[in-house]
C-alpha cells in the first residue's frame, strides 16, 4: 500500500519540490498551506509522515507540531521539519516537542529522500 506523506508549507514552490522528490516512490502526497489546514489534513488522512515548515500564516509549524503531539490519535505520526529557521532556540524548542528529523532550507531533494527514508520505508514504483 502506498505511503501517505503530508507536506505542510505555505509555499506552493516547496510543496511542488516535495511532490517531485517522491515522484519515483510509491507515495501519495497530501498538501496543506498552513498549520490549521495541516492539522485538519493529518486528522483526515492519517499520514505516515508529515513534512512541516515553521513560518506560515494562520498557524505556524511549531504550534501545529505542539497540537499534533497533544492529540492521542495523531501524536505517533513522525514529523520532519523543513525550514529555513535553524536558530538554537528554534531547534531546541522543536526538538523538545518531538520531531524525527530537521532539514534546513536550502536543501536538495536527495537530502529530503534520505531523511524520509530513515523514518518510513520508501519503495520505488514498479517500472
Amino acid at each position: 500500500m502506498a505511503l501517505k506523506i503530508l507536506s505542510v508549507d505555505d509555499s506552493r514552490t516547496i510543496r511542488l519540490i516535495v511532490t517531485r522528490a517522491f515522484k519515483a516512490y510509491d507515495c501519495i502526497i497530501c498538501e496543506a498551506a498552513n498549520g490549521e489546514e495541516g492539522l485538519a489534513a493529518a486528522a483526515r488522512e492519517k499520514p505516515d509522515l508529515v513534512i512541516l515548515d515553521v513560518t506560515m500564516p494562520v498557524m505556524d509549524g511549531v504550534t501545529m507540531l505542539g497540537k499534533l503531539k497533544d492529540d492521542p490519535d495523531l501524536k505517533a505520526i513522525p514529523v520532519i521539519m523543513l525550514t529555513a529557521e535553524s536558530s538554537q532556540e528554534n531547534v531546541l524548542q522543536i526538538s523538545r516537542l518531538g520531531v524525527r528529523d530537521y532539514l534546513a532550507k536550502p536543501f536538495k531533494e536527495e537530502q529530503l529522500l534520505e531523511k524520509a527514508g530513515r523514518v518510513v520505508p520508501l519503495v520505488k514504483k514498479a517500472a
Binding site: S11, V54, T55, T83, A84, E85, S86, S87, Q88, E89, N90, A104, K105, P106
Partner: peptide, 13 residues
C-alpha cells in the same frame, strides 16, 4: 523566505 530565515537564525543566535 529561505535567505531571510537563515539571516534571522544568525541574528537570534
Amino acid at each position: 523566505n529561505i535567505i531571510t530565515g537563515n539571516f534571522k537564525s544568525n541574528l537570534c543566535d
